[in-house]
C-alpha cells in the first residue's frame, strides 16, 4: 500500500502519457494529465508555503539566532499572499467593468503588482547580477592555462567575452581589410555558429538519451529513490 501503489500510479501515468502521444484518440488523456500535473505543481507551491510558514514560526517561537529575520520573512509572505489572494487594489477591466475579481491578479496598480515590481523583480535581478562578480572571481582563481583543454576553454571564453563588447568593434576598425574575419566579433560568430553548435548538439543528444533512460527506469520501477528510504 505504501510503496506498491505509488509505483503503479507512476507507471500507469507515465505509460498513459507515452501511449497518448502515439494514438490520436487518446490525445485528450495526455492533455488532461498535463492539466492535472500543473494543478499538483500549484499545490506543491502551497505545500512549500506551508513548510516555510512552519519553519519560520518554529524559529520565532524558539527565539533562535536571527529570529527577527524569520519574522520579516513571515510578514512579507503573509502580506504578499493576502494582497494576491484577495486581489487588493485590482481595478476592474473593460471586459467585466463591474467585477474586479475577474481582472488579472497582477494588474498594474494593484498591491501585488507593487510587490512584484518594486520588491520581487529588483531583488531577483540584483541577486542574479551579483553572480557576475562571483563568476569573474571564481574564473580568475580557477582558470589557469595548465593544459591544452584549459587553454582552449580560456581562449574561447576570452574571445566570446570580448566579442560581445564595444571593444570588438574598436579592434575591428584597427584591423586591415584582409584580416577583418579575425576580429573578436567575427570569431565569436564562428565559434557560436560552428563549434558551439556542434558541441551543444552532442551534449543535447547525450542529455536526451540520459533523460529517456532515467524516465524508463522510473516507470519500470527500477529507480524507486523518489519513494524515500523508510516506511513513513
Amino acid at each position: 500500500m505504501k510503496r506498491t501503489v505509488p509505483l503503479m500510479i507512476a507507471a500507469t501515468t507515465g505509460f498513459v502519457l507515452i501511449v497518448s502521444y502515439f494514438i490520436p484518440y487518446t490525445e485528450s488523456w495526455g492533455e488532461d494529465a498535463m492539466t492535472w500535473f500543473n494543478i499538483l505543481a500549484a499545490i506543491a507551491f502551497i505545500l512549500g508555503g506551508g513548510n516555510l510558514l512552519r519553519m519560520q514560526l518554529q524559529k520565532i517561537s524558539d527565539r533562535r539566532p536571527g529570529w527577527g529575520y524569520a519574522a520579516v520573512t513571515l510578514a512579507a509572505f503573509v502580506i504578499t499572499l493576502f494582497f494576491g489572494l484577495f486581489k487588493i487594489g485590482v481595478q476592474p477591466t473593460a471586459a467585466f467593468p463591474t467585477n474586479a475579481w475577474a481582472a488579472p491578479y497582477d494588474r498594474e496598480g494593484s498591491a501585488l503588482w507593487w510587490c512584484v515590481e518594486y520588491l520581487y523583480r529588483p531583488l531577483a535581478s540584483t541577486m542574479f547580477a551579483l553572480l557576475a562578480f562571483y563568476i569573474a572571481s571564481a574564473a580568475f582563481r580557477a582558470f589557469r592555462a595548465k593544459n591544452t583543454e584549459a587553454t582552449i576553454l580560456l581562449v574561447t571564453a576570452f574571445i566570446v567575452l570580448l566579442g560581445r563588447t564595444y571593444i570588438a568593434g574598436i579592434v575591428r576598425e584597427w584591423l586591415p581589410e584582409g584580416l577583418q574575419s579575425l576580429s573578436f566579433d567575427n570569431m565569436t560568430n564562428y565559434i557560436m555558429s560552428v563549434f558551439n553548435l556542434a558541441g551543444m548538439r552532442a551534449i543535447t543528444i547525450g542529455i536526451a538519451l540520459g533523460v529517456a533512460s532515467t524516465s524508463l527506469k522510473v516507470l519500470l520501477g527500477v529507480d524507486r529513490s523518489y519513494l524515500g528510504a523508510g516506511d513513513e
Partner: peptide, 15 residues
C-alpha cells in the same frame, strides 16, 4: 528575508 517571503507568496498566488 523579504525576498524569500515575497517570492514564495507570489508563486503561490500565481499557482
Amino acid at each position: 528575508s523579504v525576498f524569500v517571503g515575497v517570492s514564495a507568496a507570489y508563486w503561490m498566488v500565481v499557482g
